[in-house]
Design a protein around this nucleic acid. Structure first.
Length: 576
DNA sequence: GAAGTCACG
DNA sequence: ACGTACGTGACTTCA
């Protein structure tokens, strides 16, 4: 092949890239044309046939695809690396408009005015009657697969131009595409989990849940399904009449969320038990019992998937299983973290966290000197804020003042209202308003920055991050006040959250490249928005610690220093 | 499949 | 006067 760029698309036996078998590969390098290579069930033969394509996959020919991470992982099952420049149409479209869907079917209709044969038409609806791709006649496989490859090739032409007009070509080429390889490697690597420990944890939880259940039934004077918000609401508010005017959801059910129950704690002892019951049930079903089932039988490790084109701000998301929401805030929840362990006795887990990255970004972007100085001097930012807004010396800040300042600091990033702040603190609505006003007086340029962001969005229809990642805000000029203020909060929040995402992505790419170049045994495993987790080989610890710290703190230069804290341990909890 | 709830940053 | 903090994913219940 003498082409400089070729589109390819793999057909497989399922959705779990690391567990499926290859059925076919479609190639297209001329619009309207394509070729399909079919693979037999015998995996040795499949490997032999695939070897014929090694020179292509290892060449510097540009590889075009839609969600290339999936195809690269499938090929990795056969020790077939994919090298050279990449072009991923899913990610391209994510940068062009992150709020939209990026399915190839939708994109084909929108940009090519063409309706491709859907996978459902080919193999039927999800369910027991769904066909296996293996039994689809080769002719139909070919038509379907080649069509997808052809469409992807055509989409590339559109998106190349649109990336340019959206000013995101550089972000695409220098961040998102290199990140594909980084995420692929992290997903393939996986993480080790102590399933025996989780089994014991589950037994202990069951004991406590059973006792709580008994106690709740006694106090309620009846048996019901505590896990049913509907039944619980009736018990609490109709039978026990714990409150006069209970709040209701939009469907007319009683609200029984955590915030509602907490406000009721002084009314009846049953509330504490219900909250505890809910917490333990959640831990058990979502983590303790679910995680062992996610262990890959071949590798013995858990391999999450990172979604690179989901979060509208530029963040990653994690699923199957989600390893970005492992408990840490409660004593019992923290136990789950102990189950995440290094790959062997020669390793430890290393966790590296950005300290207050979003506040540092808003300080730098707004050039609010007071806040910038606090960060430059390494102050405790929440205490420092408290000292200023409550007008007391730093040493005399009370815990409550610091806690309220912390809530405002976070609230600012989200576009807080007095009502929202009073809900999150013990402050009245009036006190909350006063605190916010004082906050803006203390940090006037912060307020100016936020106003400027909203103005920019009104004029341009979008906001952008430090790496020019855009988020379009179509509702910014809406006549509906609630819809409009939602967009205004996005105008402030998206550049902050998105810039933090940009920065950690840069750090991940640089760390990955250095690790590759130096041939370290240590591997990057997880990303949790402002944290990276590694299997760190004990012999390499003192070498990689400064590398990780340096790459994270210097990934992007701002007028405020970034600070990274590193911890190590024999499990993820200890590493914090 | 929607709604409610709750785990994380 | 209105409703109310940004971004996610997973589990259970129930129509």
């Amino acid at each position: 092949m003498s082409q400089t760029s070729v589109c390819f698309d793999t057909e497989t036996t399922g959705l779990k890239a690391l567990e499926v078998e290859l059925i076919g590969i479609a190639f297209s390098y001329e619009v309207g044309k394509g070729y399909y290579v079919s693979f037999p069930e015998n995996q040795e033969e499949t490997k032999t046939i695939l070897e014929e394509f090694r020179s292509f996959f290892e060449s510097d020919i540009e590889k075009i695809g839609h969600n290339l991470k999936y195809d690269i992982k499938v090929l990795s099952n056969y020790q077939m690396p994919v090298k050279g420049k990449l072009f991923d149409t899913m990610i391209a479209h994510y940068l062009i408009n992150p709020d939209m869907r990026h399915n190839m079917d939708v994109l084909a209709e929108t940009y090519l005015n063409y309706q491709p044969v859907s996978i459902t038409e080919l193999i039927g609806k999800k369910g027991k009657n769904q066909l296996f791709m293996r039994v689809v006649p080769i002719k139909d496989q070919t038509e379907y697969a080649v069509e997808d490859a052809d469409i992807t090739l055509q989409l590339k032409e559109h998106f190349t131009k649109e990336l340019e007009s959206g000013n995101v070509t550089k972000l695409f080429n220098e961040v998102e595409l290199p990140l594909v390889s980084v995420l692929t490697a992290m997903e393939i690597e996986g993480i080790n989990v102590n399933t025996d420990f989780l089994k014991e944890l589950s037994i202990a939880l069951t004991n406590d849940i059973d006792a709580l259940e008994k106690s709740i039934y006694e106090q309620a004077g009846e048996e019901f399904n505590i896990a049913s918000p509907k039944q619980l609401g009736i018990v609490l508010f109709e039978n026990m009449k714990l409150v006069d005017k209970p709040k209701k959801t939009k469907t007319g059910q009683y609200k029984t969320g955590e915030d509602i129950l907490s406000a009721l704690e002084k009314e009846h002892k049953i509330i504490r038990d219900i909250k505890e019951y809910r917490q333990y049930k959640k831990l058990q079903s979502t983590y303790v019992d679910a995680l062992p089932n996610e262990v890959n039988p071949k590798t013995g490790r858990i391999h999450t998937q990172y979604m690179q084109a989901v979060a509208a701000t530029g963040r990653l998301s994690s699923n199957n299983p989600n390893l970005q929401n492992i408990p840490i805030r409660t004593e019992r929840g923290r136990e789950v973290r102990k189950a995440f362990i290094p790959k062997s006795q020669e390793y430890v887990l290393l966790a590296a966290d950005y300290s207050q990255i979003e506040l540092r970004i808003i300080a730098a972007l707004s050039e609010e000197e007071t806040m910038m100085e606090a960060f430059k001097n390494g102050e405790d930012i929440h205490a420092s804020t408290a000292a200023k807004v409550f007008n007391v010396p730093l040493e005399e800040v009370t815990r409550e003042q610091r806690s309220n300042a912390k809530t405002v600091n976070f609230g600012i990033i989200y576009g807080v209202s007095a009502f929202g702040l009073s809900n999150q603190t013990d402050l009245s609505r009036g006190e909350a308003k006063e605190l916010i006003d004082t906050y803006y007086e203390t940090y006037p340029k912060l307020k100016a920055y936020m106003t400027a962001q909203v103005d920019f969005a009104r004029d341009n229809g979008y906001v952008e991050t430090v790496l020019n990642r855009r988020r379009y805000l179509k509702d910014i000029n809406s006549r509906n006040a609630m819809v409009r203020s939602g967009a205004e909060r996005n105008a402030v929040n998206a550049p902050i959250q998105g810039s933090a995402a940009d920065i950690i992505k840069l750090a991940m790419i640089n760390i990955y490249n250095r690790f590759e170049k130096e041939g370290f045994k240590s591997k990057m495993l997880l990303q949790v928005h402002d944290e990276l987790v590694f299997d760190a080989h004990k012999d390499e610890l003192e070498t990689i610690k400064p590398i990780i710290k340096h790459e994270m703190e210097n990934a992007f230069k701002m007028s405020v220093p970034l600070d990274v804290e590193i911890g190590i341990g024999y499990n993820w909890l200890e590493a914090h």
